[in-house]
Design a protein around this nucleic acid. Structure first.
Lengths: 172, 172
DNA sequence: CTATAGTAATTGCCTGAGCAATTATCTGCA
DNA sequence: TGCAGATAATTGCTCAGGCAATTACTATAG
């Protein structure tokens, strides 16, 4: 693609504006403590999620979202969940879940079953192969969760952190 | 797409296996407190990020990633940053940043400037229009950050939370 | 000074996910 | 009963973003 370049920049950016206030600063709408907490939340999540995803794919060739679906199904009554419910638990759109289950079904890790009480509905059902795959991936993944996240905290700190993060948000 | 359906499922899932232990439960590798904290972290982030993104697009027609780039540039010395540095701050791959800056440049919100001290390098530079766009979006966005996240905490809690989330992770 | 290794940024290619529209089914109300 | 509106799931479309390869330039070792 053709790119238009406006101007040259001399020297390193640190050289500019050292004499005083550089440009009119942004009026601060968040105090530093608020900004710090918010950025820390975003940053920590992005870092942990990336490393975990990389680790899980390298070790078990499973993306985090697929792992999560297998995990939710393994916990569920009858090892099955409606597409809807699954999308809610994994925090994915319904369309996204349809395709995710498509992929898992293509790999034989889940199958679909019609819902007898509602002809519109389907269950995603964990297969034996899916359970085996999950069990194989789980120890390594959990070790990674510890290494990248849980190990940073003592037991009482974890309680506090969980309580903080579980606080409900407005629904509007 | 053609889908293969294995079996029918009678009744609602709650009807199955109420008589006792349903299936062999997953051996627990995380204790409940650990699992709870970890899931809370994932869930809270997913929820907050989605609502924030929706809000920001609805209000200002800016995706969060674009907002974030404008914000980082506005804070930077000379309102410019190397592509590299920008990618690190926004936690995006370099390739992703190239394209993100492409889009912002197409909208006139940033421009590119060659780096005089390293001919391989470019700066992304915030334009006046970009700054205006950021300033227009900022109050609403910050209000949303408060509503969906910050308002859940008192000032001392925010300090604690920030400290928790800033803890460093292993680098290997 | 040259060759070799390293780094900045970009591009090709591909995948995963969201929105809006669609289809099939269900529910409630006249 | 039968119709209007909600709901379950899927599909078409589109787009953002990652990895690996590429290009251009810089730094270093001999």
């Amino acid at each position: 693609m053709e790119r238009h370049i406006d101007a040259e920049s001399r020297g390193r950016p640190e050289d500019a504006g050292l004499a005083g206030v550089p440009e009119a600063a942004l009026t601060s709408l968040l105090d530093p403590a608020e900004l710090r907490a918010w950025r820390a939340f975003l940053t920590r999540h992005a870092r942990v999620a990336r490393r975990l995803e990389g680790d899980l794919i390298a070790r078990s060739n499973l993306p985090l979202a697929e792992y999560d679906v297998l995990f939710q199904l393994a916990l569920a009554e009858g090892r099955r969940l409606r597409m809807n419910e699954l999308a809610d638990r994994v925090l994915l759109s319904r369309a996204g879940m349809t395709r995710l289950v498509d992929r898992l079904a293509a790999d034989g890790l889940v199958s679909r079953a019609k819902c007898a009480s509602d002809a519109r509905g389907y269950f995603a059902v964990l297969t034996a192969g899916g359970l085996a795959r999950l069990e194989a991936a789980r120890p390594g993944h959990i070790a990674a969760v510890r290494r990248f996240f849980l190990d940073s905290y003592t037991a009482p700190e974890l309680e506090t952190l969980a309580e903080f993060l579980e606080r409900s948000q407005p629904l509007d």
